[in-house]
Design a protein around this nucleic acid. Structure first.
Lengths: 348, 348
DNA sequence: TGACAGAATTGGAACGTTCCAATTATTAAC
DNA sequence: GTTAATAATTGGAACGTTCCAATTCTGTCA
């Protein structure tokens, strides 16, 4: 229709007021008369006015736009999709909208995406950093006073808030539970040794094992890709031992599913002949057969919590970095053998 | 550090040139001398300059920002996560960044999110519309000349491009395949009856069934939520029939996984005792046990194609709406019982 | 009626960028 | 050594909004 876009001045002209008054209406100022407000609003609807956030942002150098950015390293992993949904629920009720971008674990892409979000004046950022992210990458953000909350992975040395789950406590609880069920040979399966998350989960396992009669033994740690395929491969290695394990604490749920596949291929039924515990509690965990015993980190909950931390920072003005470790709990289902009809029975 | 943000004028001053020159450097204009360019770039890095896209956008009323928006109706469904990844790959190589928002099937939220994206001056929009979206909702977008590509679901009457998959042909092919394998009682399982996608998939099933000896029968259509849980529930209903089905064409892969779970819970092994066919070919489909026979709509491919359509429109200036129906093909894996070692064997 | 307070409205400057037309510097051609 | 052509640079206006200070309008009170 019209050639140019419709501006606050067009509205003013059509409503017979000044642009300043229109601006006041836009910000719901109590200064403007109810009758005027109604008229202006009517004209805006009629002409199909679209607020130009860019222009507004330009003027009010302090107040940022009402968007918060979320940057994840692997959107195809449903863990992150759910995390984003959790963030969204909180953020939207605070009147923000969330823009999400995916880095696919690519550092360059991450830089680009974060830069782009800054250019658009995001109010804050929730980031699940790509592998290899350094404190240096976060520096410009804190220098600019942009609130940031790191989730899932923390970046050592970065002066920003972070929210990670208690990996140590999780694997530790898994080992204790399996010990109570009578297992002695408990393996730690899957994951790449060069990540912080792996270290934390392994250390929980190690500490708990050291407290058992069996003690900790290096040979029961079998690393692999943190994927379903990795799990299949790792358990193959484990079952080839002279004295194979009777239970496995897995790096994550994907690995755990792979372990189940691998066991079945050897005619060993997970949950009956062998105990498997995962980590993450992804959505499929409770519906697969056997239902997976796992450590719940509740992706949506993490998202909500991260969003709250971020909003707090945004409202506080002065971003105060805080490090939060989110508690974790063991969800006992079938794959560990504890949930069946004769709970006293010893496995293997 | 500095009080205000660092602007193009600060750079100009520090580099001893005019702001116009800095602007030219910013847009990589060939007009500026290499030496000058280098100096300016150096100063920008040094002072930590951040491009203010808002201000730029303000001036160049025509050229929009380099972001494209993608709006999906259910991010927890990995179909959409993968679609987004597909869009991203194309869009990012064209120098855009993608911002994603989730509507959770909520019309109000969808309006909000689209408005917000408009305010930020997106160059184009890829939308998987929430249930109940009307042509009216798209009207302001086309009026404003913003390129839009609808995916997955189309909106009748909306004058925008759309890219949907050939749902009718998909379920039809599934039924034919199952018939060839010897099945007669084939159920259609899952999905809500009030959506266009459901209608299309059901009509393909209906037509193909009508061509079999068995014929189409209403009782074999069991609707449910289009989720894993919905699949579990629906197959429970199905197996309780006097003459239960021996095969199921499912509304989507999520439902199909649920059906497999439900069958196993009844000691019926999917792929051996019962044939299951999904729809979507999500990434897990090929790695689950049994691997899922499904209709491939290749979420990433759809995303890429949609992105290409959108970019074409953006570059063309005048958005020319086109309706594309994307072909679909049956991927035969294990869950239908056809891929095992004795292919001649009749099931159930 | 005049003065005054408070409510409501308003014009202009400013935000950080790009575009345009104009200017200056450099090189080429005779 | 002048002219023309080209390369490089530049100041000012403009984009759509908000903020500030100033103005006008309304009603109240002496």
């Amino acid at each position: 229709m019209g050639k140019g876009r419709v501006t606050v001045i067009d509205i003013a002209k059509a409503a017979g007021v000044s642009k300043s008054t229109v601006s006041l209406v836009l910000q719901a100022s109590p200064l403007v008369n109810e009758i005027t407000r109604g008229k202006v609003n009517a004209v805006m609807r009629e002409l199909g006015y679209v607020y130009n956030r860019g222009a507004a942002n330009l003027r009010q150098a302090n107040a940022r736009s009402k968007i918060i950015g979320i940057v994840v390293n692997d959107l195809t992993n449903s863990f992150f999709a759910e995390l984003a949904v959790g963030v969204d629920t909180v953020v939207q009720s605070a009147g923000f909208v969330q823009f999400l971008s995916n880095t696919s674990e690519n550092l360059d892409r991450q830089r680009e995406v974060i830069a782009s979000m800054r250019e658009h004046g995001v109010s804050g950022l929730i980031v699940s950093p790509a592998r290899g992210t350094e404190a240096l990458d976060m520096k410009p953000l804190v220098a600019a006073g942009i609130p940031v909350v790191l989730v899932v992975r923390s970046v050592p040395g970065a002066k920003v808030s972070s929210l990670v789950s208690d990996n140590h406590a999780g694997t530790s609880a898994a080992v204790e539970h399996l010990t109570l069920l009578g297992h002695r040979r408990i393996a730690f399966v899957g994951g790449f040794p060069d990540t912080a998350v792996f270290d934390e989960r392994l250390s929980g396992y190690r500490e708990a094992m050291a407290n058992t009669n069996e003690g900790f033994s290096e040979e029961l740690v079998i690393s692999s890709a943190p994927s379903r395929a990795g799990g299949v491969e790792a358990i193959g290695q484990g079952m080839a031992m002279a004295e194979p394990p009777t239970a496995a604490v897995c790096f994550n749920d994907a690995v755990a599913f792979g372990v189940c596949d691998g066991l079945r291929a050897r005619r060993i039924e997970p949950g009956r002949d062998f105990a498997v515990v995962g980590f993450d509690n992804v959505i499929e965990a409770k519906t697969t057969v056997p239902a997976l015993t796992t450590i719940s980190v509740d992706p949506q909950g993490i998202g909500q919590r991260a969003a709250q931390m971020l909003l707090k920072q945004i409202n506080a003005g002065k971003p105060e970095a805080e490090q939060v470790v989110s508690a974790v709990r063991l969800i006992v289902r079938e794959s560990c053998g504890a949930a069946d009809n004769n709970p006293g029975r010893r496995l293997a």
